[in-house]
Design a protein around this nucleic acid. Structure first.
Lengths: 191, 191
DNA sequence: CAGCAAAGTTAGTAAACACTAACAATTTTC
DNA sequence: GAAAATTGTTAGTGTTTACTAACTTTGCTG
């Protein structure tokens, strides 16, 4: 789908956003980071909007990949483990990705960015909610609380947790602490 | 502390960020919104950075005010109610505030912004964690889960919930649905 | 190895950006 | 009600922004 250079540009763009926010993503910074001239960027992407949309598409694809892995597991308990584990590994391997899970805040300009962003989040919430509902049906998840609320807690705490990891300057072991967090969540909602 | 015009500028700046992200906050937009010329802005704030810092200070003060209200309640259960209730009312009255609770994503430029932002979030987490720990000591909060994890769930779900409200275009009744969410959380962690 | 497409360059554009200088109106103060 | 401070204006600064035109280098292909 993308050439090597295009992937390089997407990755560097992500890192620029990660370290300086959306305002850090300029064509100048990007070309400097990669080591080519500004106009060379336009040999690979039509415009800046195109780069941002590619970042969002990449993240969506990434999320979908995780959900595929999740759906391979049979019990909801295992699915929750895989969901967390996969996300934690993604962030560990590519810390710049943390910037994108909060993309709602970043990409509020263009209509297209906005819509894609909303869609990704909504899909995430829906999928997790459905996963939990299946658990309720199977009798493995407690049934006295709306699954939407459980999904808020799962995804909300995951997001805040990862954000704190970033704000701390990646000071604590993400995967290890992440396992402890999901374990706590499971204690609360698995029966 | 601030003059009427300064407060007006802060509020409009907040609204600009809310509707178009941090990139929507320009002196031109701001002056247009208020109905004065660009240089007139500089009669009230030294520079743009100054405006942004004032937004953050306002939000910090706002949060502190809420925590004061919270600390007036005796039981942790009541404190949780007040915490949620106060935040929900704040967002209901001033939806633009939603943009600021995710300020970590917005203000990643300057060192000063970054630090203040991190400090606000860290303080929030610490205060809620301590509140829950007191509950554990009093025997009202379950003691089989680290309070830090409970704080992640409380604040994380609150954030994601409010964000969804914003993304939905304020379609659902925030306060009502918020009460349901905190009720669910309490079912899980109050014993 | 000629031909050609892909990927790079330098030099430039217009628009937007934060901000300033100089002056004018308005309001406050004594 | 004059002096002074405050708050506004118009016109401009230099810098940064995304992006383009025109030309050159690189690397692959028949």
């Amino acid at each position: 789908m993308h050439t090597a250079r295009q992937n390089e540009i997407i990755q560097k763009a992500l890192q620029l956003i990660d370290s300086n926010g959306i305002q850090g993503l300029t064509i100048k910074n990007l070309s400097k980071e990669i080591g080519i001239s500004e106009p060379a960027i336009y040999r690979h992407f039509e415009n800046k909007e195109d780069i941002i949309m590619s970042i969002l598409h990449m993240f969506r694809q990434h999320s979908e990949q995780i959900m595929i892995q999740v759906s391979k597991k049979e019990t909801v308990s295992e699915q929750m483990d895989v969901l967390f584990e996969q996300y934690m590994h993604s962030f560990q391997n590519n810390p710049a990705l943390v910037a994108v899970i909060f993309s709602e805040e970043l990409f509020r300009n263009e209509g297209a960015q906005r819509e894609l962003t909303s869609a990704i989040i909504a899909k995430n919430m829906t999928q997790v909610t459905k996963m939990l509902e299946k658990g309720v049906q199977q009798g493995t998840i407690r049934n006295d609380i709306p699954c939407e609320h459980l999904a808020y807690m799962m995804l909300g705490s995951l997001r805040l947790f990862v954000k704190n990891w970033q704000l701390s300057g990646f000071q604590f072991p993400l995967i290890e602490k992440g396992r402890e967090l999901i374990s706590s969540i499971k204690t609360l909602i698995v029966r």
